[in-house]
């Protein structure tokens, strides 16, 4: 019994269908409870009710980065061990990651407007997220552009590797570029730190909820991709007679 058994699509389909209801229920429970709890938290003495945006902004930003890391791991597994489920999981995760990045950017902009007096600031953190979004777009576009599924998996895998290096590089380059113009850390919310317990626990619950939601969506979307692949394979066999 090893984790590589899940590289077998049949095994993956069986196991994922068994655990999917539980994960989905967990996601609904955590996300629902966390969001309601977060929405009912009292106002912050400085930020007023805008602190409630944090319960969406921080988990979304966290997932945006984590999903890319997951895609990197899945791409590596595909490139090294050629497990199809891994490549399909990376493909399935990308749109979710892109949506998370959009949520983080939009809520950040809406939050920034009353707090900093501007929708957008070329702050290192914000800029790095915009660049991450561009990487997501390129990755998704490349998947849809290549016809042969194995070639697409290979090319996007290589792109994911290179993109990861350059995403990190850009993060530090951007820091360098706007150093001294902006007092960086005071504007950012470091998750869990310097946050009052009143907000901390609902925030943790929301993070868990976002994570479970991602796992749910990932499982469903990977199952979709496996079914599509099987449909295409069967059709191809029919054509050949």
């Amino acid at each position: 019994m090893s984790i590589w058994e899940y590289a077998n699509p049949v095994k993956f389909m069986r196991t994922s269908s068994a655990i999917l209801p539980w994960v989905a229920a967990g996601a609904a429970l955590c996300l629902g409870a966390g969001l309601v709890w977060g929405f009912l938290t009292p106002q912050d003495y400085k930020q007023g009710s805008t602190v409630k945006i944090m319960f969406l902004h921080v988990p979304a930003a966290m997932m945006a980065i984590n999903i890319w890391v997951m895609m990197l791991a899945a791409s590596l597994i595909w490139l090294i061990r050629r497990h199809h489920v891994s490549a399909l999981a990376a493909k399935a995760a990308a749109p979710v990651g892109a949506v998370m990045t959009v949520i983080a950017l939009l809520t950040g902009a809406i939050w920034g407007q009353p707090m900093w007096g501007t929708w957008w600031e070329w702050d290192p953190r914000l800029t790095a997220f915009l660049i991450l979004f561009l990487f997501y777009l390129g990755y998704i576009a490349l998947w849809s552009a290549v016809d042969n599924p194995d070639s697409a998996a290979d090319l996007t895998g290589v792109l994911c590797l290179v993109g990861s290096v350059f995403a990190v590089l850009s993060r530090y380059a951007v820091n360098f570029w706007n150093q001294g113009l902006h007092q960086g850390a005071s504007l950012s919310v470091k998750a869990g730190e310097r946050v009052d317990p009143t907000y901390k626990y609902p925030l943790y619950l929301c993070m868990l909820g976002f994570f479970l939601l991602f796992v749910t969506l990932l499982l469903i979307r990977t199952r979709t991709e496996i079914r599509r692949r099987r449909t295409a394979a069967l059709l191809a066999r029919e054509v050949r007679g």
């Binding site: 805008t50 809520t107 809406i110 939050w111």
Partner: peptide
Amino acid sequence: PVLAAWGV
């Protein structure tokens, strides 16, 4: 802003 962010 809060309702807009949550809604979006």
